[in-house]
């Protein structure tokens, strides 16, 4: 799905959550290729000249989430939890920890051992970074969220230093003998998030959220 389109969906669900018209929601999506630059992005984060990025036809979008530049694209599962933190302890650090632990739990279901690294938000395996986080909080309600690499084109990732770090981005399928289907990872991740936040799940389309 085109990035800016999902940004609009996020913003409208965020507004509904802030006014209490919907419960906590998690949106999941697989994006068309895009680089997004968070609030603390710096120009040095491209590994290749910017015109090479632009010639590849990958849009670059400035967004309000925290963090630096990141890539989204096919083979990556993106989850946007729209959560009212007033009902989850009003703690930004705990929130980020909860979504990181949810990713770790989902990866474990596929036999992948992953961990958090103190001081380096995201989820890590021995080979590098497998999931990124970047969050925006207004009126204690979150948007943006996490991106888990299931089977991403490494050539696209190679254009940037993910999140400003000179680290390797790793996909689940590099670590698995039998590639995981994005849809299966999605189910596990959403279940894992529900466990972390104490949700009872109900499946809805974005335009069916309000009752």
């Amino acid at each position: 799905m085109e990035y800016r389109q999902t940004l609009e969906v996020q913003r409208s669900v965020h507004a509904l959550r802030r006014t209490g018209k919907v419960p906590d929601v998690v949106l999941t999506v697989e994006h068309d290729p895009v680089f997004t630059r968070g609030r603390t992005a710096r120009p040095l984060e491209y590994r290749v000249p910017l015109d090479v990025v632009l010639r590849a036809g990958i849009p670059v979008v400035d967004v309000e989430r925290g963090g630096d530049i990141t890539y989204h694209g096919p083979g990556q599962l993106v989850a946007y939890p729209i959560v009212d933190l007033r009902q989850h302890g009003r703690d930004v650090k705990r929130y980020v920890g909860t979504i990181e632990e949810a990713v770790i739990g989902a990866l474990a279901a596929f036999g992948i051992e992953a961990a958090r690294r103190p001081g380096f938000p995201g989820v890590w395996v021995q080979e590098g970074k497998i999931a990124s986080v970047g969050v925006y909080v207004k009126d204690w309600v979150t948007r943006h969220g996490l991106a888990l690499n299931v089977g991403v084109d490494p050539a696209h990732f190679g254009m940037i230093h993910p999140c400003g770090l000179a680290v390797r981005a790793v996909s689940m399928n590099e670590l698995l003998e039998r590639p995981a289907a994005l849809r299966d990872v999605e189910v596990r991740l959403v279940e894992s998030l529900a466990h972390g936040f104490g949700w009872r799940l109900e499946l809805r389309e974005p335009d069916e959220l309000e009752e």
Binding site: G38, T40, R65, G66, V92, K93, V96, P121, G134
Partner: peptide, 10 residues
Amino acid sequence: EVETEKTTFV
């Protein structure tokens, strides 16, 4: 806006 833990807080 302030940032902590990769989170922008308004």
